[in-house]
Structures are given as C-alpha cells and as structure tokens.
Design a protein around this nucleic acid. Structure first.
Lengths: 150, 150
DNA sequence: GTCAATTTAATTGTAAACAATTAATTTGAT
DNA sequence: ATCAAATTAATTGTTTACAATTAAATTGAC
C-alpha cells in the first residue's frame, strides 16, 4: 500500500498566499500608522475616495465584505472622523457613507505616504505585472470553483 | 497644483492578494467541511503532519504565528481530538503538541480530499509555478522592508 | 390596497490575528 | 548559590471576517 507523498508546507500555494497576505498586512499597518488607519480600513477608504458616496451594500460589493464586517468597521471610521453614515431619505433601508472634508483633505497625504513605502519595496514593473497577472488567474479559477459549489 | 493620480482599487497588489487570500480561505473551508477543520487549523495540521511533535514556539515559527493566536487554535484542535498538549518534562515552560492516532489515520483522507478539490481548479503546472515564484518575490521584498522598519 | 417575498443593515456568535502584558521557568553572570 | 535577564505560553483587549438571524422598509403579485 503506497504511502501518500508528504505535503510540503512551503510549497503549498495557499500557504504562500496566506503568508504574503499577512506580510502585506504588516507592511501597510506600519505605513499607515501616522494616520491611525488599519489595513482593512485603508482598503475601505481607497474605495470611498474613488466612489463615495456609497451605500453599505455597494461598498461591500467592491470589497467582497458583508454588513457583519462593514458595520463595525464603518462605525470606527466614523468615530475617527473619516466618514459620515446616514440613512437614505428615498429608501430608509440603505445607509449612505460619505467622506468628511477632513478625509478628502488627507487623501493625498495618505497616498503619498503609502506610495513612498511601496516604492521602497523595489518591485520592478515586470514583477508587479507578473504578480497582478498571477493573482488574477488564481482569482478567476477560485471564483469559478466557488460558484459551482454553493 | 497637480492633482494626485487616482488609485484604482482593482490595480492595487495588496488588494489582489487580500482578495485572493479570502477566496482561498473560502475554497479550503468548503473542501475541509467534512473534517470539521477550518483553514488555519488545516495549515497547522499540515505542519504537524510533517514535523510533530513540536512545541508551540516551533509551530509558531513555521506558521509565523504567536501564542496569542495558537493557544486558542490548538485548544480547539485538542477538543476535536486532533492533537494532545502537554508540558515538557525537561522544560516546564514549553508545551509539546503531538498528533493523536486519529489524526494520523485521517491524514491521507484529508490530503486526498484537498488535492482532488485543488485539481478541479485546473491550474496548469506553469501557472502554479508562476504563482509560487511571484509569491516568493513579494515575500522576500516585504521581509526586507519589514525587518528594516522594526 | 393587502400582504407575502425581498432587500438592506444591524446583531449575535465563533474563529483568527496581533499587540501588550503576565506568570512561570530556565539560564547565566557574578 | 543567588538573582537579574531571558524564554515560553497563556491571557487580555482590539480588530477582522463570516455565517446565521433579526428588524425594518420596500416591492410586487394578486
């Protein structure tokens, strides 16, 4: 009876992605320290700087997050003065997220800080492109698997 | 005064990695459902199947996790009968994690299940290799940045 | 127009992750 | 041998993430 080949942890794609994500997390957490933003909060702000105003649902579609995650995160962003939350008048079910003036003013500062840290990483355009390409491939395959196994 | 270029969320590497990780998480969570293992628990078990017995500290070094994360995770694995936890006799500070017979017996079943799901993804060897390569590059760069900014 | 079905956000409960602290043990310098 | 420093896990507190449920508002079928 043949023994299954051992699975080497460091060769598992999932583990590499899992680890890379944690390191990205740490990297951005450091870069964002001056702004009192966590990494997920920064990602939410990125979306809002691009598309605000947005409903919680719309924001969740961009981020693939539900209200269970977003409601508390948005309350924290609100209490730190980044956003406002208000019920829509035309549809009382939806909550509209808007940027504060302060958040609009800080936008360029945050981008500058994050970009300069990212530049220090020293990824070549080719490396960035390769990474982006790879992630897209993985996502596409995972999507089609995940969708067929609801 | 030139306006900063808008940052497109879907072009941010960090966001792609963040998203891919979540989708991997979902993918493995599904594949592992029959075994009552979460994805992080599975990653811990992978390490233990390869190296057990291990101390909490040693396991943490493989996984880049500290006792704050591992202690509760290991307690759950223990309560589900995957592992045992016991103080080392030679050094009462360290806790030794060992596999139960049940865990050893289930090893091949888990691998078979996970591998067959992974195969369905349909990643070519080239794609796998490209992904692995990319992740290594990213990790190396992030490591050197993170280490220089302690 | 009424009421069941749907939609939206919030809530509840569980698991991860990490920083900071604590408690116990071991090591090592003297 | 003693005691300060270092090591190891556990604990505490905060934030994410997600499943499942709840509450309120809206839509639509009739």
């Amino acid at each position: 009876m043949p023994k299954t080949k051992p699975i080497r942890l460091d060769q598992q794609l999932c583990f590499q992605v899992y680890t890379a994500n944690k390191k990205f997390n740490h990297f951005y957490q450091q870069a964002l320290k001056p702004f009192d933003l966590t990494y997920p909060q920064y990602i939410a702000m990125l979306t809002l700087w691009q598309y605000a105003p947005l409903s919680v649902k719309q924001l969740g579609e961009y981020l693939h997050l539900d209200s269970g995650t977003l409601t508390p995160l948005l309350k924290r962003l609100e209490s730190h003065g980044w956003i406002t939350r208000s019920r829509s008048e035309s549809d009382e079910r939806t909550v509209i997220i808007e940027l504060t003036d302060d958040a609009k003013n800080k936008r360029d500062n945050v981008f500058e800080r994050v970009n300069s840290c990212f530049d220090i990483l020293g990824l070549t355009p080719e490396e960035k492109e390769a990474c982006s390409q790879t992630m897209s491939t993985i996502e596409t395959k995972l999507d089609s698997y995940n969708e067929s196994h609801l």
